[in-house]
Amino acid sequence: MKIKVTFLLIMFTLVIQAQEQIISGKVLSTENNEPLPYVNIGIKDKSVGTVSNENGVFKLYLDHKVRLNDTVIFSYIGYKAEKYLISDLKNLTGSILLQSKNMELDEVVLSAEKVKYKSKKIGRTSKGIGLFHANFYSYNEKDVDDRLSKEKGMKFKLRRNCHIKDLNFNITSNNFKSLKFRVNFYKIEDGIPTEIIVHKNIVFEIKDNFHGWFKVDLEPYDIYLKEDIEEIAVTIQWLESVKTDEKSKYFAIATASSPIHTAFSREKAMDKWNKSGQNLSFYLNAMCE
């Protein structure tokens, strides 16, 4: 399926505040002039990044380590990434265009032979004793917006062709009235997540300070993963939050130390991935051959 859509980013400003710069703007679709939510924006391998909000508006905070020749990447699933130097964005008077790319998705071929599918849980299905938590909060944050585009997740091994039904994780701490995340599926190369392998914008919301096991229904997205992928990374990415009160800052998933499992995290979109020997209470429900 070919979709020709371009996005227009307008209203750029650059504000100097002490040693910090802010690039701000709004993301619109030129096809219908509607705002585009949750676009990934950042500098590769640096902790500088964000996502646009549900109205297409974004603010990209640049710290003192950012240079004029650093490149800002604008990326959205199914579209060609655009790259701009910081120096160009400072003087930008026109628009930035993102064009859709032709996605050649692997065709799911159903065999004429009768195949038995078995229910399988991939990942850690227990909460454990609840002493350890993978927290999205970090002490160097200035405010909750510092978490925009932050990701956490797990490495999973595939041994069969599988249809993914849902993602489940155990929330041990939650100070928020509302949280929105995106589910991302990555290929793993040389031990770290690389390219997106499920080209669908899977956004979900957690409401009313929910604690316990939370399920993200993935059935509507028809996700089939082939065994030849072998290893994948599945993460949840912070997109938006509404505090319960002014002191709200904690959101965490149960975890346990593990020498044989790998958890992934990164602070911002386009940032370097961090690996740790943890086993999050984080699993996929699947039907596998």
Rank of each mutant, 00 (worst) to 15 (best):
D271L: 02
K59Y: 10
G130F: 05
L36K: 10
F204L: 01
K165G: 08
V216I: 14
S276D: 14
I22S: 11
S173T: 03
V144F: 00
M270Y: 09
S100A: 14
V216Q: 07
R147P: 03
H64V: 14
I232Q: 04
N55C: 08
F214N: 03
N274D: 13
R182C: 10
F169D: 06
K155S: 13
D190C: 03
Q237K: 14
N40Y: 07
L167G: 02
Q99P: 00
F169T: 05
D271A: 15
D106G: 09
D63I: 12
K65V: 11
I171N: 01
S265F: 12
F176G: 02
S276K: 09
N91K: 11
C288K: 02
G94S: 14
M287Q: 14
K152Y: 15
V5L: 07
M1D: 13
K114A: 15
F132R: 01
Y250P: 00
S119R: 07
K101P: 00
V144Q: 08
V216G: 08
T13N: 12
V198Y: 01
V15L: 12
L60Y: 07
K65W: 04
R147C: 07
Y137R: 05
E240D: 15
Y224V: 14
N32A: 11
I73K: 03
Y283N: 06
T6K: 05
N174Q: 04
S281D: 05
N174G: 08
